[in-house]
Write a protein that binds this DNA or RNA. Structure first.
Lengths: 189, 189
DNA sequence: ATTTACATGTAAGGGGTTACATGATTGA
DNA sequence: TCAATCATGTAACCCCTTACATGTAAAT
């Protein structure tokens, strides 16, 4: 279902922003959308080749002096058509495998302190992330006023912020719950 | 990173709840934790075989009259040790590929109405999910008072509730943003 | 009589990751 | 000089999904 060649549409979709090389795509994903999408070279280059063979993208070799040659790809009309079919299609809630929830769920015979430590570490990582999100939010908001893509990009950032905050709040709540169960917390009510 | 045989620990972990067959595991996952974990038969049976070969689980063939024979698996001491090593290990924020965010991010040249429709459909699915979560919450809360595992299980449900609610709120916010950009919304401020 | 639930597995294929190979250029 | 950045790709491997194969028994 959600497995049907999703990196295909990711690459096609990103090429609507501007023509890019495999290297560009990798950098773009890592810099701009790494929190909700990732692509590795081992996915990118074979997929670009495949999209080229299918006539969905067009390769243009660009050589500049004193720089390695690049293969820059742009969408073809056919590529755009395939993309818009994807945009038409239905969206499913993804089936995720969420490690922290699994760990907690089967955490009944590890020491309670371990579970607390786990949620703590997890919360710390979420906090790092939210700090980053919030640091780029003002700029994102400006871009949202300036272009259609800026607005949509801002929406994705907002999603990151809202869901990460929710998870942090969940950590808080869960830590309280777990600490209340600690043997030496018996008298502290 | 997060790819290192995670179904291995899922199966090992679930077997701490009670000894189970492959069929049991599948049913359990589908019924109890499908919102944060999934396993297919094609994963379960080969993995059980492998865990057996490695001495992490023990197979016991159980035949009951008028029923097909079952292979019920229980954890071995070694299995428990491997599991607790996993519990010790660090947790990473998973790298996800989040289709709705990708679609929005590259949605700048699809009609604005399509983006709105997308978020709407997505919100509807989240609402179905939250309705389900909330319907099982009271029972989960009771179980939380009754056992250690009940408490941890409840924590996972709470995570689902909080993050799903956050996403629904994000949909609302995003819909408002997108609708405000609609050409015929110009005079409606 | 037929569908559903019980029950265990395999085979093919897909999608993705990591690591490697290669080589130029730039900056510290 | 050495690391980092630019740049493209491949190969091995892994995990997982889907679909298939097979068969019994209970329920409708």
């Amino acid at each position: 279902m959600s497995k049907r060649v999703t990196s295909r549409f990711a690459i096609l979709g990103l090429l609507t922003l501007k023509p890019m090389s495999g290297y560009d795509l990798k950098r773009f994903v890592d810099e701009a959308i790494r929190f909700f999408w990732n692509l590795s070279y081992g996915t990118i280059y074979p997929m670009l080749k495949r999209l080229e063979d299918e006539g969905l993208v067009l390769r243009k070799n660009v050589s500049r002096e004193n720089r390695p040659e690049r293969s820059v790809f742009r969408l073809t009309g056919k590529g755009r058509r395939v993309l818009s079919e994807w945009h038409e299609g239905d969206i499913e809630l993804p089936q995720v495998n969420d490690e922290i929830l699994l760990r907690l769920f089967v955490g009944h015979d590890v020491p309670a302190e371990k579970n607390i430590e786990l949620v703590n570490r997890y919360r710390d990582k979420l906090r790092d992330r939210i700090r980053h999100y919030e640091s780029i939010e003002p700029e994102s908001l400006e871009e949202a006023r300036e272009s259609r893509h800026g607005l949509l990009s801002h929406a994705t950032l907002r999603c990151g912020i809202l869901t990460t905050r929710a998870r942090i709040r969940w950590c808080q709540e869960t830590l309280e719950m777990l600490q209340a169960q600690l043997p030496d917390a018996a008298g502290e009510v």
